[in-house]
Nucleic acid binder design. Structure first.
Ligand SMILES: NC(=O)c1ccc[n+]([C@@H]2O[C@H](COP(=O)([O-])OP(=O)(O)OC[C@H]3O[C@@H](n4cnc5c(N)ncnc54)[C@H](O)[C@@H]3O)[C@@H](O)[C@H]2O)c1
Ligand SMILES: NC(=O)c1ccc[n+]([C@@H]2O[C@H](COP(=O)([O-])OP(=O)(O)OC[C@H]3O[C@@H](n4cnc5c(N)ncnc54)[C@H](O)[C@@H]3O)[C@@H](O)[C@H]2O)c1
Lengths: 216, 216
DNA sequence: TTGCGATTGTAATCACTTTCACAATTATAA
DNA sequence: TTATAATTGTGAAAGTGATTACAATCGCAA
């Protein structure tokens, strides 16, 4: 069987196309060209076509793409054609912001359970999500067959949390603690490090004007 | 003059090396090999050496890198050898989490001013940062010569906010609103989209087990 | 002083991603 | 029916990034 390999960046761009398509659908648009679809997201029309072509022939030559069917094709490709239950661990400043963030639901993610160790927080409810004691992570995640978790605990508790989550059957982790976590091979992880994103800006600000750099 | 080009990913990895180096410095370690430096961050020793070599000859053959001087060399390369003042616009759920996040200061970023339009928030103080009225963005940013801003306003206000910020002289924007913003050529922008990060997990979870996909 | 194990820096190679350019297809109007 | 304009899908070329492999250098012990 041929192992096709889709560029990681292509996958990311699918989400942007999807977002544009949703706008277009709202406007009642029926078909769209790769050229228009590429607009506002700084990619070329050829890139759009190439990205989509990794997954199928979704368009019609001379016509373009049907907005509605491309939406459902992309959703299907991305695994967004169903609802994903998500567990959140660590209901602090960042965790509670995420609990209240409607942007996740738009893509089909539902934070259905949250955990903390702070007795003052346990039992409270944020946006219909009741906060449970961390000691119940394994039991509840197993029972509800949740596959994705978000880690927003302090860095000191992050590895332990990851261990419990993977033991409970979690297959994908979105990690906000500034640390690489060690997890089993078959578990996917994505770490978001906001300080590094800012740091990148500092780098490019520092290096854009001075084309001449001393050490190169 | 030869335009050298450093891979974007190399720049990102420098932050990880820096983090490891800081741990090593705390432990009193004096020198370190590329091999050890690569540990825990899933890169090869050769990758570490290559990344560093874009910016200079920081190591000594047969010996390795001096921890302290590599820290300051990397900081200097990344533009982190000084304090960066940062403005934050939109002190809502996410914005206030960021205002209280110590991880930014560790890299030398200081949120020195925050803006909102909500009269209930204006005048309050979070972590020594007083929240000002949005109408004052241009005046204050110009006066304090701030170059980096974080946008955490609702998506509907994001473009307008970006316009005011760039007019005020901001050169780098960290954008959390789920939208590509149009800004002048010479302004750098980095958009963080948490829903897309989760979406990526869903994609890789959906596609890892089933090597055989119908449409390819 | 010499020999040896450790370790870097980098040229060459390999791998991956984007762009280019055009044949193939479609709708439409003459 | 035919010509024309629009538009896709994709092979080939170009561009970018990662890995390999090894000469060069270093510290140290004999
Ligand atoms: N605040 C931010 O803007 C921000 C930004 C980026 C990254 N982060 C990272 O996100 C994480 C959380 O940051 P925060 O600012 O929300 O911190 P926080 O201290 O406000 O919240 C952490 C929460 O985790 C809970 N907790 C601690 N140990 C736990 C455990 N073992 N199990 C379950 N819950 C536990 C605490 O009770 C608390 O409610 C940190 O790793 C931080 O570095 C935060
Ligand atoms: N909450 C999250 O976890 C989260 C995660 C990812 C991205 N985001 C994005 O971040 C942004 C903010 O999200 P949030 O959940 O904090 O929203 P929020 O509604 O809690 O906060 C938005 C804040 O911006 C203020 N505001 C509105 N218009 C403004 C203007 N013109 N100038 C200055 N301030 C203004 C509001 O008064 C409010 O305080 C949104 O674009 C959202 O999509 C949020």
């Amino acid at each position: 069987m041929k192992k096709i390999q889709v560029p990681k960046e292509s996958v990311k761009r699918l989400f942007l196309y999807l977002r544009n398509l949703n706008y277009l659908a709202q406007e009642g648009r029926e078909t769209i060209s790769s050229d228009k679809l590429a607009q506002d997201i700084y990619v070329s029309a050829a890139q759009v076509r190439k990205d989509l072509s990794y997954f199928g022939d979704f368009g019609r030559k001379g016509v373009g793409y049907n907005v509605q069917s491309l939406i459902s094709d992309i959703k299907s490709v991305l695994g967004l054609d169903k609802k994903w239950l998500v567990a959140l661990v660590g209901v602090g400043r960042l965790g509670s912001a995420l609990l209240n963030y409607p942007g996740l639901e738009e893509l089909g993610f539902q934070i259905s359970v949250a955990f903390d160790i702070d007795p003052k927080k346990i039992g409270k409810t944020y946006r219909e999500v009741k906060i449970k004691d961390s000691s119940q992570i394994e039991k509840i995640i197993k029972k509800e067959k949740i596959k994705i978790a978000i880690i927003t605990v302090p860095v000191s508790a992050a590895q332990k949390t990851a261990d419990v989550l993977t033991k409970a059957g979690i297959k994908g982790i979105l990690n906000f603690s500034p640390k690489y976590l060690t997890i089993p091979e078959n578990v996917k992880i994505k770490t978001v490090n906001i300080a590094i994103e800012l740091g990148n800006l500092a780098y490019y600000l520092t290096h854009s004007e001075s084309e001449a750099r001393s050490f190169i």
